[in-house]
Design a protein around this nucleic acid. Sequence first.
DNA 1: TCTCATTGTGCAACCGGTTGCAAAACCGAG
DNA 2: CTCGGTTTTGCAACCGGTTGCACAATGAGA
Lengths: 335, 335
Amino acid sequence: MKKPRLRSIDDLAKLAGVSKSTVSRALNDSPLVGVATKDKILALAKDYDFRPSVTARALSTRSSRTVAFVIDAYDPECGLHSPFSLEIMGGAATGLHELGYGMLIVQADGARGDWAEEYLVSGRVDGFILMTYENKRRHVQALVDLEAPFTVWGSCDMDPCCSVSTDNRLGGRLAGEHLVATGRRRIGFIGGSMDDSEVVQRLLGFSEAVAIDRSLHTPGLEAFGDFSEPSGFVAMNELLDRDGSVDAVFAAGDMMAIGAIRALATRGRRVPDDVAVVGYDDLFVSAFTTPSLTTISQHIADTGRTLASRLVANIERGVVESAVVPVELIKRDSA
Amino acid sequence: MKKPRLRSIDDLAKLAGVSKSTVSRALNDSPLVGVATKDKILALAKDYDFRPSVTARALSTRSSRTVAFVIDAYDPECGLHSPFSLEIMGGAATGLHELGYGMLIVQADGARGDWAEEYLVSGRVDGFILMTYENKRRHVQALVDLEAPFTVWGSCDMDPCCSVSTDNRLGGRLAGEHLVATGRRRIGFIGGSMDDSEVVQRLLGFSEAVAIDRSLHTPGLEAFGDFSEPSGFVAMNELLDRDGSVDAVFAAGDMMAIGAIRALATRGRRVPDDVAVVGYDDLFVSAFTTPSLTTISQHIADTGRTLASRLVANIERGVVESAVVPVELIKRDSA
DNA sequence: TCTCATTGTGCAACCGGTTGCAAAACCGAG
DNA sequence: CTCGGTTTTGCAACCGGTTGCACAATGAGA
């Protein structure tokens, strides 16, 4: 039998011999419909493969069931080129889908906060997942001003603010302890900017671990990049120039660790024999570098899902609660 | 002066002392409004920072100005873990934004084609960008059956079908020629599945280049993976077991090339001194591997933009026209 | 001054759902 | 059989835009 396409809830209503309100209620599993009627309507809907218009629904309910995943286009750590952001995004997409939400990709221009209104006020999205380091305060402020539901990756001291972050201090300590335990004597640190509290915490934890013997790490043995690979390359060279006896480095991001390894290779140092390298993030590629990278895992995919579920909780129930996902040392070949 | 938030076009109409139709036309830059009226309305809109509801607009015009970027969750080359897909996605997001479209991330389940209806029929999106290898035919067929506008990455012989691909044969030839020119004598090939026409073409071009001297490459010197890094690792080991005198490999994907390099390192072969490696794709990370990867660039970001612009052309003007983006050899350290 | 185009503007229907409220249907108890 | 209460159902308004069509205003030509 030929089944004409059902355009709207009205068509389905006619077919079932009821009113559109009843159909609407049946499709939303409302208790205000009789069981028999509901079953009949649902069977019919399934039979005709009917899909109600999400647009109409959105207009009527003033909620789009869509959120924006915002990445700062020019942020080296969080831009569209950053493997880290992209992996978080994957996790978030999965989480949102499970919760029945769609995910829109938005590239924010660091300069203007205007994107927030563009997407929220126009009703395109119900909330935001924010992925940014460099302009975090500005972006968060824009969202707070708008009273928009959002979650943000990384620690955030603003209020109200639902952040999902990891225990950076613990991560730093795990890295330091591992290097100390494997007998390293001169351990350097490569960070992102010290304006970034993530970096500060990682360094802090790292220092604690190393502090059992002050000779292991001196404050001078630190260099800073921007989380990008080339900046890790540069930073490693700086460290080597400053102190040729370095026998280990802890980099606060895997891409920088990878850059450091490249610098070491260029200067003929073997990893891990001459210099051990520990990274931070556990990117997808980090298992496949040569040598594979020992690193602190932030369980990126889980983090993405958490960002998703917290945001939905905020949108639907007004719950604003930050989360901390666990970190873990992943032992591979580089240290 | 305090500016109350304008909820709708009606509010703005009252403010301007005109009807909502006029406001609607003014905002859409219709020629049916007087210039003076239009200017006045636009000024007012700007002043009050008014954003019309995209939802209402979508309902009325039956177009969401949103497209879905579909990735096959379980496809090793195109899943959410594939750097290649993610980079294309970045390009597509940029292109779509420039064209005033939003991009929704959809993870398709290879098994069911059901996602297409879910998103199109419900009016969530106007079209699809398809990123898949393994289930390409099935997915494309689903879209064709729905008469949905879409563009697909990679060659596609189905009709109607707007594909954006690269000249794989030329790419393969460039790789082969480079290896021959640098004096390699025993050149292996690592492909994805031969069911994949991309791979077939790359091998074909490669063979042409190498054919000037049949001894350079023998049909037996081929191994196949699935574009993932571990599969490249395995394939490289196979080649080495089969013929220890291999002095070069062309891998049909960068992740496999990276896996091959790891295998070579494990077995104590130096790259490029003992064995040269050429990849395919020019991923973001390929510049940062150790050694950095010589590869065939597909200009991934441009490709993403092209996917976007073709799709929009299809949606808005019904134009279905495939595109081929140029390839280029990027010389780095691995060959 | 009167016509007739030519613009410019407004009315009202429509897009396809949701939902408050009234009314109908049903039920058991008295 | 009537009554009061509990389900079920339907009507109609609403969400916030777009657009066909009728009508008003304007200006040029006769």
